[in-house]
C-alpha cells in the first residue's frame, strides 16, 4: 500500500471516529450508560462496602475508593465498547452504513473508524472517572504519569470490547440483540476482580478470572494508580488489552468481509 493511500485511509478513519464521538455526545441514551452508570455503581459500592477494606485478604490500600476506581474504569471500557456495537448496528439498521459502503474506501477503514471513536470515547471517559473520584477523595500514589498510562490501557481495552460488539453488529445487524448484551457486562466485570481482590472471589469466579483478559487490565491499572506493584502487573495489563484489541479488530473486519459476501 502506498503512502498516499495510507494517509487517505487514515483521514477516513479519523473522520469516522470524529463522527462517532460527536454523535455519542448527542445521544442521551448512549451517554447515560457510558458516563453516569459506572459512577453510580462506584458510589453505591464504595459507600456500602467500604468496611471491606478491613476484611482479611484485602490488600493494604490508601483508600477503598482508589482500589475501586479501576473497576469503574474497566466498566466504562465495556460500556464504551458495547455502545460502539449499538451505534454500528443502528447505522446498519437505518441505512447510514450504506452511505459508507458506497464510498471508495477500504472496507477495513469503516470498522477502524468506528473503533477510533471508541478509543476517543474511552480516553475521555476514563479521564473523567479518575477526576471525579479524585474530587471525592481518591488518591493516586502512582502519580500523573501512571494515571495517563492507566487511561491508555483502558482505551485500548475499550477498542477490544468494541471489536467484539462491532463483530456482533456486523454478523447480525441487530440493534435489539446488542442492547440485550448489557447484562453480560456484569459477568465480565465480576469475573474480573473489579471491585474485590482476586483472593476474595468465590473459587469458581477465581478460575474464570484467570481466563478473563479484563482481570489483567483491572489489576494493571490498579497497580499503576496505587503505585503498588503488589496489586498487579501493568505490562501484563497492557499486553492483555493489546491482544484483545488486535484479535477483536480482526474479528470485526472479518465479520464485515463476510457480511459483504453475503449481501
Amino acid at each position: 500500500m502506498s503512502h498516499g493511500i495510507l494517509e487517505r485511509e487514515a483521514r477516513v478513519v479519523l473522520a469516522l471516529g470524529r463522527r462517532a464521538l460527536t454523535v455519542q455526545f448527542r445521544r442521551a441514551q448512549l451517554l447515560m450508560p457510558t458516563f453516569v452508570l459506572p459512577l453510580m455503581l462506584l458510589a453505591v459500592i464504595s459507600s456500602g462496602t467500604s468496611a471491606a477494606v478491613d476484611l482479611r485478604g484485602f490488600p493494604d490500600v490508601a483508600s477503598y475508593l482508589a482500589f475501586m476506581v479501576p473497576g469503574t474504569v474497566v466498566q466504562g471500557t465495556i460500556l464504551a465498547g458495547l455502545t460502539a456495537g449499538i451505534a454500528l448496528a443502528s447505522d446498519i439498521e437505518f441505512g447510514f452504513f450504506d452511505r459508507l459502503l458506497a464510498a471508495p474506501v477500504k472496507r477495513t477503514s469503516l470498522v477502524l473508524g468506528r473503533l477510533c471513536g471508541t478509543l476517543g470515547l474511552a480516553i475521555l471517559q476514563s479521564s473523567f472517572f479518575l477526576l471525579v473520584a479524585l474530587a471525592f477523595g481518591a488518591r493516586y500514589p502512582g502519580g500523573a504519569g501512571a494515571a495517563v498510562a492507566a487511561v491508555a490501557i483502558a482505551a485500548i481495552t475499550a477498542v477490544g470490547v468494541g471489536g467484539i460488539a462491532a463483530a456482533i453488529a456486523l454478523r447480525t445487524g441487530s440493534l435489539a440483540l446488542l442492547q440485550s448484551l448489557f447484562p453480560f457486562m456484569f459477568v465480565l466485570l465480576f469475573t474480573a476482580p473489579a471491585f474485590f481482590p482476586r483472593e476474595l472471589l468465590a473459587p469458581v469466579l477465581r478460575d474464570f478470572s484467570v481466563l478473563n483478559p479484563l482481570t489483567y487490565v483491572v489489576e494493571g491499572i490498579r497497580a499503576l494508580l496505587n503505585g503498588d506493584a503488589g496489586l498487579g502487573d501493568p505490562a501484563l495489563g497492557l499486553l492483555a488489552a493489546c491482544l484483545l484489541a488486535v484479535c477483536t479488530t480482526a474479528l470485526s473486519t472479518g465479520a464485515l468481509q463476510q457480511r459483504l459476501r453475503r449481501t
Binding site: 473522520a15 463522527r19 460527536t22 441505512g95 452511505r99 459508507l100 471508495p104
Partner: peptide, 18 residues
C-alpha cells in the same frame, strides 16, 4: 441515509473525507 444527530455541514465534511 442521513444521521439525524449530525448537522448538514458535518455530514458534508465527513462525506468529503470519505
Amino acid at each position: 441515509a442521513i444521521d439525524p444527530l449530525m448537522t448538514g455541514r458535518e455530514l458534508l465534511r465527513m462525506q468529503g473525507a470519505l
